[in-house]
Simulated assay, not measured.
Amino acid sequence: MQKFTSFVMFAAMRTGSNFLEANLNALNGVTCHGEVFNPHFMGKKDQTEMFGIDLAERDANPLAVLARMRAEDGLVGFRLFQDHDSRVIDHVLADPTCAKIILTRNPLDSYVSLKIAQETGQWKLQNAAKLKTARVPFHAAEFETHLAELQAWQIALLHGLQVSGQTGFYIDYDDLNDLDVLNGLAAFLGVESRLTATDPKLKKQNP
């Protein structure tokens, strides 16, 4: 019997959330629907409707989207970033039936990766031969802002878990290729399926 009825992946840009999502979707009975509450799209880039609900309806009543999503078969979830709908963040953070996956990465690495992605316009890579590279300047003040935002996000998540008596599954970017860790996540979620290999499609960018 599953102890969770849904899950959320709390992450930030350039932390490996696409890769973790792909591996979650490789588990039988698990579906991760992407950035359902991204301010500019639903689920994935350029998509403006999910579960029969469009962007305007989602923004007017985000919890209706959650209800439609959770009505699907299996264990369903989505990715949630700090700039997504705060009403959804507050709701799922307080819900003990929603499993919390908290993905982190060294802030300097995520900053550099973000700057390179902004420069090249390449946010996701499936063909290594098409990798775009760039040298980018390091701006100390900009990095300090990036670091402060990530720290505030992590503190808010930790506080939300503490006051509601919950625990999350913390996973770092450097652990995303560790099958034992990924299968530990599957155990945490309460699903029987296990991975025998990591997702081969997505390629590492901006190391």
Rank of each mutant, 00 (worst) to 15 (best):
E49S: 14
D178G: 03
K124T: 14
G43M: 10
A148I: 03
Q118V: 08
I171H: 00
Y170G: 08
E72F: 08
N25S: 10
N25A: 05
A148H: 09
G74M: 12
N23I: 09
Q82R: 13
V8G: 03
E149Y: 08
L93C: 03
C98N: 15
S17V: 00
D85A: 07
G165Q: 15
P107G: 06
A186M: 09
S193A: 15
Q122P: 15
L147H: 10
V181H: 00
C32T: 02
Q126D: 08
P107D: 06
D199T: 01
D90F: 08
E119S: 07
S193K: 06
R68Q: 15
L150V: 02
Q166A: 14
L182K: 00
A99M: 09
G160N: 13
F169A: 04
H91M: 06
A11G: 01
N38S: 03
F188M: 05
A148V: 13
G16M: 00
C32S: 11
V136G: 04
L93K: 02
F4R: 09
E144W: 05
V88G: 12
T145D: 09
C98M: 12
M9W: 00
A22S: 12
K132F: 10
S6W: 03
E119Q: 14
K45M: 14
F41I: 01
D199K: 03
G16P: 01
P39H: 02
Y170R: 11
P96W: 05
T167V: 02
L27K: 13
L93M: 15
G52T: 12
L147D: 05
L195D: 11
I102E: 01
L158H: 12
H84A: 03
L185C: 03
I89A: 04
T133N: 11
L20K: 00
K3G: 06
L131F: 10
A129T: 14
L189S: 00
P137M: 07
R87Q: 05
K45I: 08
T104C: 01
N28C: 08
F4A: 01
L93R: 06
S17E: 01
L103F: 01
A12P: 01
E49N: 13
D83T: 05
D85H: 05
R14F: 00
Q205I: 07
D90W: 10
N106Q: 12
T145A: 09
D199N: 14
G29P: 13
D95G: 14
S6A: 14
G121S: 15
Q154Y: 08
G43R: 04
Q122L: 09
K45H: 14
A64Q: 14
K203R: 08
H33Q: 06
S164E: 04
Q2S: 14
K44H: 08
A197F: 12
R79W: 06
S193I: 07
